[in-house]
Simulated assay, not measured.
Amino acid sequence: MVLLRDGMCPGLDEGLVRGLRAADIKTVEDLVSSDMEELAQRCSVSYKALFAIRRVLLAQHAAFPVSGADLYEELLSSTAILSTGNPSLDKLLDSGLYTGEITELSGGPGSGKSQVCFGVAVHISHQLKQNVIYVDTTGGLTAGRLLQMLQAETSNAEEQMEALQRIRVFRLFDVFSLLDCLYGLCGGGLQRASVGGGSVKAVIVDSVSAVIAPLLGGKQNEGMSLMSQVAGVLKTMAKDFNVAALVTNHVTRSGGGGGGGAPALGAAWSHIPRTRVLLEKGGDVRRPGLRSATLIKSSRRPLLIKEEFDLKWWSRSKEEGGGAAAAASGKRKRDETDS
């Protein structure tokens, strides 16, 4: 909404602005949508002069029409797909994390949300040679864990250090600090965080619910407002800076006690992520790292499809797994080429 003001275009002087405001025409939108003949009479101004002002304002402020084909071409040229490093998750996500979008991992305690985030950060920084912003709101991220995963990727200490430098960590434990951080990233922090020739391609927030959920419920309207602000800045960052935003969310258990659950933060938040994945522990006690991932929201794939994966995938050395490791290495090379 653009307010009318003196000097916006030829003919729109202070006197005419006062006359328009007296006629309850205060914005460009008000003027261009008005009946020009009636408005000219009410403001005692020439119809021809008012019509000329309207035409100039339309040219200055109206959006230019864009065809669907142009929008599709823009999407293809601007969107990148970042592999998670795990073939099963990539299959579930239709090849990986999409830049310009928010992807959510939800699950209960021990479901592997943070471990997946660690693995994704390591894969993007080491294999794709891109920078990652990691916002830790639970205190669960340690440099030692990242280094352990990198040591499984490469034995070269220099490569390990370079990859660690491409992961910039922010430890924040309240929603106000989170907002300050996200606004700062949008205000130039993403560019400053780019090191080693790569750009920031992923922003991970683990967990978004940890700082928002305590403010929701009851009569605390402030919590909903703060959640909306977090959602807005995340969506703006993903779209305007062409990054993939990955967030984690807790689940709320159903009253039946059957072990099922739904992502926390309610219906208002459910519209924010473009893709949502529910992580759950596997049932095989012989494979404690086994997890199931169920697609519960997507615009690209059928819902409720499920994939199983092992959390140890990101921590195993390249020598383990024989042909599977070779296949994963080949996929990583394709990912580097695609990026």
Rank of each mutant, 00 (worst) to 15 (best):
M1L: 00
V2A: 14
L4N: 00
P10Q: 09
G11P: 08
L12G: 01
L12H: 02
D13M: 12
V17P: 03
R18V: 05
A23M: 02
A23G: 02
D24Q: 14
T27A: 08
E37G: 04
E37V: 06
Y47K: 08
I53L: 11
I53M: 11
R55V: 10
V56P: 03
A59R: 12
S67I: 05
S67H: 01
D70S: 11
S78F: 08
S78W: 08
I81K: 05
I81W: 08
P87G: 09
D94Q: 10
Y98P: 10
T99I: 02
E104M: 05
E104H: 05
L105N: 08
L105M: 01
G108D: 13
G110C: 07
G112I: 00
S114P: 04
S114C: 03
S114A: 06
C117F: 06
V120R: 06
I124A: 02
H126A: 09
Q127C: 14
I133T: 03
Y134I: 06
T137F: 13
T138V: 14
A143S: 14
Q148F: 09
M149A: 05
L150K: 05
N156D: 02
A163I: 09
L164S: 01
R168Y: 07
R168V: 07
F176N: 10
C186G: 13
C186S: 15
Q191R: 15
R192C: 09
V195K: 01
G196P: 07
S199T: 13
I204G: 04
D206Q: 01
S209V: 04
V211K: 09
V211Y: 11
K219Y: 04
Q229Y: 06
L234K: 04
K235P: 12
K235F: 07
T236I: 08
M237R: 06
A245I: 05
V247C: 00
T252Q: 12
T252R: 11
R253K: 12
G255W: 03
G258P: 10
G258R: 10
G260K: 15
G261W: 01
A262E: 14
L265W: 00
I272Q: 05
R274Y: 09
R274H: 14
V277L: 04
K281Y: 06
K281N: 10
G282Q: 06
R291K: 02
S292A: 11
S292M: 13
T294F: 01
S299E: 14
R300Q: 15
L303W: 03
E307D: 06
K312F: 10
W313G: 15
W314V: 06
S315Y: 08
S317C: 11
K318P: 13
E319V: 09
A325R: 11
G330I: 02
E336C: 14
T337R: 15
D338F: 13
